[in-house]
Simulated scan of single mutants.
Amino acid sequence: MTEILCVVGARPNFMKIAPIMDAFARQPIAAKLLHTGQHYDPAMSESLFLQLGIPRPDINLEVGSASHAVQTANIMRAFEPVLDAERPRAVLVVGDVNSTLACALVAAKKNIKVIHVEAGLRSGDRAMPEEVNRVLTDQVSDLLYTTERSAQANLLREGIAPERIHFVGNVMIDTLLTHRRRAVPAEQTLGAAPSRRYAVVTLHRPSNVDNAQVLRGLLETLATIARDMDVIFPIHPRTQSTAAQHQLTPLLETPGIRLLPPQGYLEMLGLMSDATLVLTDSGGIQEETTALGVPCITVRDNTERPITITEGTNTLTGPHPDAILACVADVLTSGGKRGRTPEYWDGQAAVRIAAHLRAWLDGATPDMPA
């Protein structure tokens, strides 16, 4: 019998599910892994499964990409018959992608328990599809595992019963600490040792790359940064396409800017570990740079991960060139923020989840650490 059906769908999910599947095997908890196929790049998905040692999915829905509404609907339609066949005791979802919400909704409507890992994070920006996914998934979840204590306050404010909320730490950091020694050295990814300090850049959010004026400002800022340090830019296909559409490609050809294709997890880990700074609009990278002690500039006006600012290495600048360049100057002159490791970002979050779930499945009412 399947006790827990675990769901992944897009790249951010893979780093979160890897330590969970490993911890479940050690408990043991009878778990199956379902991949919705939401991620647009099958080759990249395969690479991440291999690099992180994730078991091959037992089920792949292969839904592919589409608009948010169509993709969510397609996942729900494909997931329902799987639940009818598997009849798991609970469905576990991670993060905030469309697969997370779609599978949580189907399970809840079929009276199957829902477990949400990385619950309670809030940016306060309902224009972000991920924020909508987070809020709705938490509302239908029976167990909510949080990465930072501020998440509990968010959930309580939204009417979630306190006994459903459990602070366990950050499974993304479990993966980072497990694989840090295996990180691919930057010089191997780049083909040669960097000749000077460098920044790593990732940009993919619609608010940054779909608006030609905002994207132009960000690319012009990267060109300015490239005068003082190399800019290593694993470019998202969406970003590259939009830049070409609006005749911004020449900015990407500025000396000092080096474009790379999307990288595997171990390659990105190596690049970030040796970087002078990271400039991003990714949620997960805000967490990873805090764990690595590398200054991070987040080109968003909000973040759902406030602990990376209050305790970590993250600075929120928005997509505003003057603010970004001031932060870069601070990093170059004084080293920038270093921060400290947040509570329970110790590589044991998945172990805590598995221990709690084993007792919960056995009918106990387990206590979590204070």
Rank of each mutant, 00 (worst) to 15 (best):
251 L>R: 03
152 Q>K: 14
62 E>K: 02
363 G>M: 06
331 V>G: 06
252 L>K: 08
344 Y>A: 12
366 P>R: 12
59 I>A: 09
365 T>F: 01
55 P>L: 08
339 G>S: 07
51 Q>M: 04
5 L>Q: 10
289 T>S: 08
262 P>I: 12
179 H>M: 05
100 T>H: 06
339 G>N: 09
159 G>Q: 02
175 T>G: 05
73 A>Y: 00
353 I>D: 10
229 M>T: 07
329 A>Y: 02
16 K>Y: 02
243 A>V: 09
136 L>A: 13
281 D>V: 05
261 P>T: 04
34 L>A: 13
153 A>P: 02
44 M>H: 04
275 A>P: 06
360 W>L: 14
74 N>C: 10
288 E>C: 03
364 A>K: 14
98 N>V: 08
25 A>V: 00
306 P>N: 09
338 R>V: 14
119 A>G: 11
349 A>D: 13
59 I>D: 08
223 A>H: 00
161 A>E: 15
292 L>G: 06
35 H>N: 14
351 V>R: 15
318 G>R: 07
201 V>T: 09
236 H>A: 13
147 T>G: 11
7 V>D: 08
86 E>N: 02
329 A>V: 06
79 F>V: 07
133 N>G: 05
88 P>N: 06
78 A>W: 01
126 R>M: 15
50 L>E: 15
266 L>Q: 10
302 N>Q: 12
202 T>E: 04
237 P>I: 06
55 P>C: 06
200 V>M: 11
369 P>C: 00
129 P>G: 07
228 D>H: 10
60 N>D: 15
108 A>H: 10
303 T>R: 04
93 V>N: 04
181 R>K: 14
281 D>I: 04
174 D>Y: 01
355 A>M: 06
22 D>Q: 15
143 L>K: 09
351 V>I: 12
277 L>Q: 05
212 A>Q: 11
93 V>A: 03
218 L>A: 09
324 I>A: 02
77 R>P: 00
246 H>Y: 14
363 G>L: 09
10 A>Y: 00
133 N>D: 08
179 H>G: 02
126 R>K: 10
119 A>T: 07
168 V>Y: 02
293 G>W: 00
96 D>E: 12
232 I>W: 02
68 H>T: 08
299 V>F: 01
85 A>H: 03
180 R>K: 11
91 V>R: 08
19 P>T: 03
282 S>P: 03
28 P>F: 01
40 Y>R: 14
244 A>D: 15
255 P>L: 14
272 M>L: 08
306 P>C: 04
362 D>M: 12
259 L>A: 07
243 A>F: 05
114 V>Y: 05
189 T>K: 04
251 L>S: 03
363 G>D: 11
248 L>R: 01
257 I>G: 08
128 M>Y: 05
193 A>M: 12
187 E>T: 01
58 D>H: 13
329 A>T: 14
227 R>Q: 15
321 P>C: 04
125 D>C: 07
320 H>E: 15
62 E>A: 13
206 P>Q: 06
340 R>D: 03
227 R>M: 12
66 A>W: 00
56 R>D: 08
287 E>Y: 01
14 F>G: 10
59 I>L: 15
320 H>M: 11
302 N>A: 14
353 I>E: 09
303 T>S: 11
27 Q>I: 01
266 L>V: 07
348 Q>P: 00
241 S>I: 03
40 Y>S: 14
127 A>G: 12
148 E>Y: 05
265 Y>P: 04
161 A>L: 12
187 E>N: 02
245 Q>H: 08
239 T>L: 07
